[in-house]
């Protein structure tokens, strides 16, 4: 196989208070894959995400992004390659206007003038928010803010898009619109979520993080269709949801 976009080896992390959030995570994500990262609360999902772009430093083990080890000398390039969309768009949109928020990342990469304008325009078009460039972010609806948050990261042209709970707090229509956008992007995706139908809809592959290790890794439909394994990892489907039947209706 080709070089993985995300290559996580024996990754362990203990917080200063001694809590061991990760105890040897191995994960490989290849170009073009869409992978769901599942797991109960407190399994270490957010800790793992913060290692992927070098916000947290491993206690042991390593992370590489397309062959580039995550570490001090090239953090800037790592953060360009790994775009993290955080859960609360109000945390991600901190500038006075949508345009400035989307421009923030590429401008930090040194883009100016027409190149910067083109990036911003294209990223906003990808999420269908090009008409809102001059609006202050807090005047947008929650779903629109989430889309702009995705655009702020797309503007950096990342190799892998990491989304933390992308469907949380969205109404069903906004949730579907975001799914359409994510499907339309030609980018590797790692999606942290508790929304299992969403994971099934968007990600052919799922990995389960439980107690700081990867406890399962396989086809999403197989995992969701295995009640015993689901129960072991404290995962539950919504009432009446049948993953195999749902896949029959999946949009192409």
């Amino acid at each position: 196989m080709s070089e993985p976009v995300l290559d996580v080896r024996r990754l362990a992390h203990a917080y200063p208070d001694g809590h061991e959030a990760l105890r040897g995570v191995d994960l490989h994500v290849h170009r073009g894959e869409r992978v769901a990262l599942l797991g109960p609360n407190g399994a270490g999902k957010t800790t793992l995400v913060l290692h992927l772009n070098g916000i947290l430093t491993p206690t042991a083990g390593s992370v590489s992004v397309s062959g580039l080890p995550v570490g001090a000398p090239h953090l800037q390039e790592v953060r360009r390659r790994v775009g993290v969309v955080f859960q609360d768009p109000d945390d991600q949109l901190f500038m006075g206007s949508v345009h400035d928020d989307v421009a923030f990342g590429p401008a930090n990469l040194g883009l100016r003038g027409e190149a910067l304008r083109a990036r911003v325009r294209r990223a906003l078009e990808q999420v269908g928010m090009q008409d809102y460039a001059d609006r202050p972010p807090h005047h947008l609806s929650y779903g629109q803010r989430r889309r702009v948050a995705v655009a702020t990261v797309l503007a950096m042209e990342p190799e892998v898009l990491v989304l933390d709970e992308p469907s949380s707090n969205l109404d069903p229509a906004s949730r579907r619109e975001l799914a359409d956008i994510l499907r339309s992007l030609d980018v590797t995706v790692l999606m942290v979520t508790h929304d299992l139908p969403y994971a099934l809809e968007l990600c052919p592959r799922a990995v389960v993080l439980h107690d700081g290790v990867i406890a399962a890794d396989g086809a999403t439909v197989d995992l969701l269709g295995d009640p015993e394994q689901m129960a072991r990892h404290r995962l539950e489907l919504p009432f009446g949801f049948d993953p195999r039947a749902a896949l029959g209706h999946r949009p192409a």
């Binding site: 913060l50 772009n53 916000i55 800037q76 953060r79 360009r80 775009g83 993290v84 955080f86 609360d88 945390d91 991600q92 901190f94 345009h99 400035d100 421009a103 923030f104 990342g105 401008a107 930090n108 990469l109 100016r112 003038g113 910067l116 304008r117 702020t152 990261v153 950096m156």
Partner: peptide, 20 residues
């Protein structure tokens, strides 16, 4: 703190970039 993390994740190095 979360906003600061989000800024670092997009390459913030302590100076605001000059935007048009």
């Amino acid at each position: 703190e979360r906003v600061h993390l989000a800024m670092l994740s997009r390459g913030y190095d302590g100076r605001m970039p000059d935007l048009p």
